[in-house]
Structure formats: structure tokens, C-alpha cells
Computed example of a mutant assay.
Amino acid sequence: MTGLLQSALAGGVLRLTLTDAASRNSLSEAMMAALQSALGTAAADRAVRVIVLAAEGPAFSSGHNLKEITARRADPDKGAAYFAALFDSCARLMLGIVDNPKPVIAEVAGLASAAGCQLVASCDLAIAAEGARFCTPGVNIGLFCSTPMVALSRNVASKQAMEMLLTGDVFGAADALRFGLVNRVVAPERLTAEVTELALKIASKSMVTVRTGKQAFYRQRDLPLAEAYAYTARVMTENLLMRDAEEGIAAFIGKRQPNWTDEP
């Protein structure tokens, strides 16, 4: 991988670690490109069953690189074209997590700020260390966290999301758990072990089933109720006709372990 991102694969779990501690793992142009590339490769790699996003240093991610942004104010258009392209790239990264057929788990130690908080919210699951902190502080510098708001508002109740966005305050891991931003909070020394245990549990499932379910979850979420039921009924019908569903049900009835094919 690059000097910004390290990769390790074991037991079907791909661990992607942000290693740009000097910039507090900011989502610079280079970091976003590295993440997009790694996620795209993982999506097509049959050896990868679950993806973990982790980070080195005191910050999970500090969000967009403000030095990069400020430098482009010298452009003839004051940076307008660059800013638009930057946020388009960020959106592709976040969508690359949601649309990835592999489940993505955030392992959060330290601070997840602004677009770094957006990164956590975009992941399918998140486990935080007790000392982790979360914020969307753009309002404090005159730049409302509008794009982080998209992921945040789809994971956190409206009142809590608005409090984070309007105050810019830093919230602890216990608040993040209460808000629904993370699944659980664990002791720092247990963080990697807890994430690995969860990842391996998911990796033991039929990947065609997991892929089907993840896609359906996000598609049905914003549909009207009747449309959501109609859509998921079609998904379950298709799922039942897959080889792994037939095998899994037969294994359950026969009181044995299933032998997944991971094929439709």
C-alpha cells in the first residue's frame, strides 16, 4: 500500500490502517484516493470477506485537510472548482463503503472529526475505545459540516445530530453509543480484539447472503413502508433460490454446519 495506508489480510478480514499520523489521518486528496483504491480492490477480491478501517496515532481521522483547502484559495476561481471536485471525491469514498459488497467496520481510537466522523458514520458497524471522541466542528470555523451531515443524519437521531452539527462540541464514546453512532464501547486494550472477533464472526457467514442483505438494507431504508416490503419480498424470494440458502436451511434441519459456496 501507500505510506498513508497499510493493508493486512488474515482469516478473510482485510485490515486497512490509516498511517498519516502527522496530519492526524486527514482525508487529504491522497488519503481519499488510497482508500477508494483499496476499497475497490477489496470489493472484487474473493479472499476478502470483511473490511476493518483503523488508524494509527491520536486521531482516527481529523477530516478534510484544511491546509490543502486553504492553498487553493489562490486559484483564479478562489478554489471553487477544486472544492467541488474534493467533495465529489469524498462522496465517492463514502458511497464506496456503503455500496461495497463486503461489510465495513470502523475501529475507532482517538478523535473522529468532521469528515472523519462522516467516515465512521458511513461504515456498516463501528466499535470505539473508551477514550474515543467524535465531533462535527465545522460551525466553529464558519464551515458547516454539510457533507458529514448526510452520513451522520442517517445514523443518529435528528436531535442528537443537530446538537453535534450546531454546537461543534466534542462528544465522548459513551455519547456516541447513546446516539447510535457506534455499536459498542470497549476498553482500549480490547479494541482490536473485539473488532477482530466481530469481523471473523461475520466472515464465517455466506458472503452471497451478506452481500444480498447489505445491499437490501440500504435500498429499503429510504423507501415508503409498502414499497420497502414489496422490495424486500422480492429480495427474499431471490435469496431463497440461491444455493447457500438451500444449503443453510438443509444444514439447520440436519443439525450440521453449512458448507457455503458463496455463489448465487
Rank of each mutant, 00 (worst) to 15 (best):
A33W: 04
A161Q: 06
V210Q: 04
G40C: 10
M162Q: 04
C135K: 03
L14G: 09
A187Y: 03
T237K: 14
T41Y: 07
S61F: 08
L177S: 08
R46W: 00
T147A: 13
A121Q: 10
Q6L: 08
V182K: 02
H64K: 07
P101T: 03
D77A: 14
R211A: 12
M94L: 15
K102H: 06
A80M: 06
R15P: 06
L125D: 09
Q257C: 07
L191F: 10
L5G: 11
P76L: 09
K102Q: 04
P101L: 07
P258Y: 09
A34Y: 12
D124Y: 04
R178H: 11
K102Y: 00
L66G: 05
K102W: 01
D75K: 01
W260L: 08
A114S: 15
Q220L: 12
R178I: 04
V139T: 08
V50K: 01
N140V: 05
A85K: 10
A151V: 04
I141L: 12
E29Q: 13
F179I: 04
T261D: 02
P258M: 04
I127N: 12
A245Q: 12
V182C: 09
A22L: 03
Q118R: 06
G11D: 15
G138E: 10
N239M: 15
F144Y: 09
A30M: 06
E263P: 00
T212P: 13
D77Y: 02
E130Q: 14
E194Q: 06
L66M: 14
P58Y: 03
Q160K: 11
T192F: 03
Q220D: 00
S89A: 13
P264S: 14
L119H: 08
A33L: 03
F179R: 11
L152Q: 01
Y82Q: 04
A128Y: 05
C135T: 13
S62M: 12
G172N: 10
S37K: 14
A10H: 11
S206E: 06
L93H: 09
A216V: 00
A151T: 07
L143N: 14
R234Q: 13
G168F: 03
A81K: 09
T19V: 14
N25F: 10
A250S: 09
R133H: 02
A233M: 08
I127L: 15
R15C: 09
A34D: 15
L16R: 09
T192A: 15
L66V: 15
A106L: 00
A203P: 02
